[in-house]
Write a protein that binds this DNA or RNA. Sequence first.
DNA 1: CTGTCCTATCTTTTT
DNA 2: GATAGGACAG
Length: 702
Amino acid sequence: MSTSTAGLNTAQNSAVTNTDGPLLVLAGAGTGKTRVITHRIARLLSKRVPASAILAMTFTNKAAAEMRTRIRELVPARKAEGLTIGTFHSFCVRALREHADRLDLHPNFGICDSDDQLVVMKQALRELQIPEAELPPRLCLARVSLLKSRMISPETLQSGGNGIDNDIGRAYARYDAGLRTSRLMDFDDLLLYMVKLLGDKTSLRAFQKRFQYLLIDEYQDTNAPQYEIVRRIGAVHRNVCVVGDDDQSIYGWRGADMTKILNFEKDFPKAVVVRLETNYRSTPQIVAGANLVIRNNPGRHEKTLRAHDKDGEAIRIKRLLDEEAEAAFVVDDIAERVRSRRMRLGQFAILFRTAVQPRIIEMQLRQHGMPYRLVGGMSFFDHKEVRDILSYLRLVANPSDELSLLRVINTPPRGIGASTVEKMMSLAAQQRASLVDVLRDESTALRPTTRASVDRFLGMLDSLRRDHPADGLVDLLKDLIRSVNYGEEIKRCYSDSATRTKRWDAVNEILNMAEVHGRQRSGATLTTFLEEVALSANDDRDDDRSSDDEVTLMTLHSAKGLEFGEVYLVGMEEGLLPHLRSIQDGGIEEERRLAYVGITRARHRLTLSYVQSRARYGNREASLPSRFLYEVQGKEAPAELMEHISRIGTSVANESAPATPRATGTKKGKPNRKPGSKRSESKPRTDRRKAAASKKRVSTKG
DNA sequence: CTGTCCTATCTTTTT
DNA sequence: GATAGGACAG
């Protein structure tokens, strides 16, 4: 046997060697989940399963990339060739393009991001004359996405509709129609159409025949269509291995369906269940704390994490006066650790529940000149010039893409103004034709100058399409940037030379990305490039740029799957973690899992902090320590706390806060350190927008 | 089209 | 209290 199973523990080994039949691997935090998956794939390959018969699906690009890297360490490249490892969405896109004819799809359909979605939804609401005040587009979009992730179609919804649900149903249908005219799919559609494709017997058989072995990562986050894809492809050979941890399911609000991991044994009878319970990441104290918290959740797959390591520090719980003191404490503490223990900043993470919390921490970090990285801010792809160029590209690839057409038709200004566009749009609606067709139609009435502009614009797009071979991506881009004279546009829009340079650099960065894409992917085309951009745009929490010398700031959600030497989990208060909304809607369990995820990110040292008072919506309110702080110490939350909370649950107003936060067995580590006035060169890396930039100035109040 | 004022909102965001 | 997004005026 060529596969080495050395270094795997008994449970891991059994997960790796049980290659045939359904297998559920319950992998607690830090128990070597990725190791198991990669070793399992190596094992299959060594048993002469062809690489092309293996399909491994993950939820993030990062997870897929890591899997690929680690497999490369285990097996020779030649053997790994032909493996299908990717996110659910990327797998679906490829499959759909390949089998586009079976569903009557255009093979060059585009993928729209959330901004595009919003545009389409707004349009839909306008057409239905549903006022945005009545049904905010964002909310509507969220609801539609949730419906799609439960595989509920507009028709189903409408039949039982009352009032707002009826509106949502109509908007849903209209929105989908809008996407279809532009030959676009949103993320949910990729999964739904895949399910549809698998409803076709011939296609289904082809997939079943090809993919003999399935591996699914993060199974607790699977939603209905994803589950359906797995179930159908795996129905015949039943070599379905799912790996996950129900205790880390934190995306329920987005349609992830935890019952899938809880019912796996029912869905796949005779499934073998393997529990990975040895945690190789954290100290016994941290593992114990995590267990104490999560055991309060009912209805889970019972499992108890055991620490592999022998000793460590106690979990620290710190009470601070207010959020400013909390931020100062954390930053001082990190500075002190760096000084006395010579630790790198990259070892530290500050985790929080909501996106507003990091602001005050950022201020402290800046004052200390401590470099940091805030995960989840604005992405490269949110910049105007990037979106412009990509819209042109999308339009070149997919002439039906009306969204992109509307975005670039007068950018840079070329004399096709808003009123013309509006006229053309209504004309298109009248003639039941697409906007491009109306523009192309010589009989459409236009002023001669406008006609000339339109023809020039359409001609430019046509020649871009005509003059470049499918694999001539970089040349196409260069030609495009030259043809639309984007350099001039930047000069026109920005007077400041530094800004100009920055914007122009961004444009060039797209060129670089295209070049890299062409080099790395065989058979790269414009379509594959756009696909990659669409499916990996927001993935900037990954390591490529992260440095050893930055503190990481991120939400608990973003932190899943990562680990840090030292973790500060701030804002451990009732109303924040667990969040008030969840307390009211009975979502405590998911909040608890969130706390569990946070706790289990830490390797050596974990600090939980809460404050006595916090500014909320303008006024300062007393805070109560989170129930999870009691739980983590193996205590019961005091009756008065729970009583107070139940009061919040019923009445939204919580003006009086009689229950003073009691100093819970607060293990104070060392007394508060004096602010070290260490001033290294500050290069805070925040790409927040103007808000943060101006904030920076304001924050010099000391 | 751009800047400014006003007002509704205040959880999380893999793809 | 901050902020973002929309309405509206210039």
